[in-house]
C-alpha cells in the first residue's frame, strides 16, 4: 500500500471500530434511556408511587412522562452538549454505516440462513433507521412542523399531548396521514431496536469478546433479551400514544402546569408554549378546568 492512500484507508481500522463503538456508546445507551422514558407513557402510573393513587392509568402515564421530559429539558446539565454529541455520533454512525453497507451484496435467496437474514436486516434497518431518525428529530426536536401532519409543534410542557397529535395526525384524533406516520414510527422504532440488539451481538464478535460458538450463542441470548425488552418498551410507548387522546392528555398537562406555576403564571406559560394550531382549543381547556 502506498503512502498516498486516503484518510479513510489510513484510519480504516480506527474508523471501523469507532463505528462499532458509537453504535453502543452513546447511541445505544441513549436509545435505552429514550425508550425507557417513552415507555413510561404506558406504565407511568406505577412510577408515580403514592402520587399515582386513584389516578387513571392513561393519566398516570401522561403525568409521569411529562415529568420526566420536563426534568430532562430543564434539569439535565449540558443538555445541548449532550445532544450535539449524540447527533454527531448518529451522523458518523449513519454515514459510515451506509457506506459500509454498500460494500456488500445480500444473498439470502441462495443462503437463507438465520444469521444471513440478520446480516441483511441489519443493513435494511440501518437505511430505514437513518431516514426515520432524521424525520423524528427534525419534526419533534428541531420543530420542522411543516413535516408534521397537522403542523403540531412538540413541546416539553405538553410532551404527551403534542406527541399524540403529531403521530395521530391532528389534535382532533386520527387522520390518514397520521396513520401513515404512526406506521412509520412503528416500523422505524422496531427496526432500530433490532439494529441495536443485533449490533450488540456482532460487536462482541468484532471486538473479540465472544470467540467460541457457545459464547456467541450465549451472548445472542443476552442480546435477544435486550432486544425484546427494548421492543416492549418501544411498543408500549407507541401503544400509549396510539390509544391516547389529545384533549385528555392536555388536560392532565395543564393541571400539572397549574400545580407547578400557580394559576397566575399559567397564561404566560401557555402563550409562550402553545402551538399555534392548538390556540383555539386553549380556551376550552381553561374553561373546562
Amino acid at each position: 500500500m502506498n503512502e498516498r492512500q486516503g484518510f479513510l484507508d489510513r484510519h480504516h481500522f480506527l474508523l471501523r471500530r469507532l463505528h462499532s463503538l458509537t453504535g453502543i456508546l452513546p447511541i445505544g445507551v441513549f436509545l435505552i434511556a429514550h425508550l425507557t422514558t417513552n415507555s413510561s407513557l404506558a406504565w407511568g402510573k406505577y412510577g408515580l408511587r403514592a402520587e399515582g393513587h386513584g389516578v387513571p392509568l392513561v393519566d398516570g402515564g401522561v403525568m409521569y412522562f411529562n415529568k420526566e421530559v420536563a426534568w430532562i429539558n430543564t434539569q439535565v446539565p449540558h443538555l445541548l452538549l449532550i445532544e450535539i454529541t449524540l447527533w454527531a455520533s448518529i451522523l458518523f454512525h449513519s454515514v459510515l454505516g451506509v457506506y459500509y453497507a454498500t460494500t456488500g451484496r445480500s444473498n439470502t435467496a441462495r443462503y437463507p440462513f438465520q444469521d444471513n437474514w440478520r446480516y441483511t436486516l441489519q443493513r435494511i434497518s440501518g437505511y430505514i433507521g437513518v431516514a426515520f431518525i432524521f424525520y423524528h428529530v427534525a419534526t419533534l426536536r428541531w420543530g420542522w412542523t411543516f413535516l408534521v401532519p397537522g403542523g403540531t409543534q412538540w413541546s416539553h410542557e405538553f410532551s404527551a399531548s403534542t406527541l399524540i397529535a403529531a403521530l395521530q395526525g391532528s389534535t382532533g384524533g386520527w387522520t390518514p396521514v397520521g396513520l401513515a406516520v404512526s406506521i412509520a414510527y412503528f416500523l422505524g422504532v422496531s427496526l432500530l431496536v433490532f439494529h441495536f440488539a443485533n449490533g450488540l451481538w456482532t460487536a462482541a464478535i468484532t471486538w473479540g469478546l465472544t470467540i467460541s460458538q457457545q459464547a456467541q450463542r450465549r451472548w445472542g441470548v443476552v442480546c435477544s433479551a435486550v432486544g425484546v425488552g427494548l421492543m416492549l418498551a418501544a411498543w408500549s410507548a407507541l401503544g400509549a400514544v396510539f390509544v391516547g387522546d389529545y384533549e385528555a392528555a392536555r388536560a392532565v398537562e395543564v393541571r400539572m402546569l397549574k400545580d407547578k406555576y400557580g394559576e397566575d403564571h399559567l397564561n404566560e406559560v401557555l402563550e409562550k408554549q402553545v402551538p399555534p394550531h392548538a390556540a383555539e382549543s386553549q380556551a376550552s381547556v381553561l374553561s373546562t378546568d
Binding site: F13, R16, D115, N116, Y119
Partner: peptide, 10 residues
C-alpha cells in the same frame, strides 16, 4: 481486512 466482515456467518 477483517473489519469488513459483516458477520453474516454463511
Amino acid at each position: 481486512g477483517i473489519t469488513d466482515c459483516g458477520n453474516a456467518q454463511n
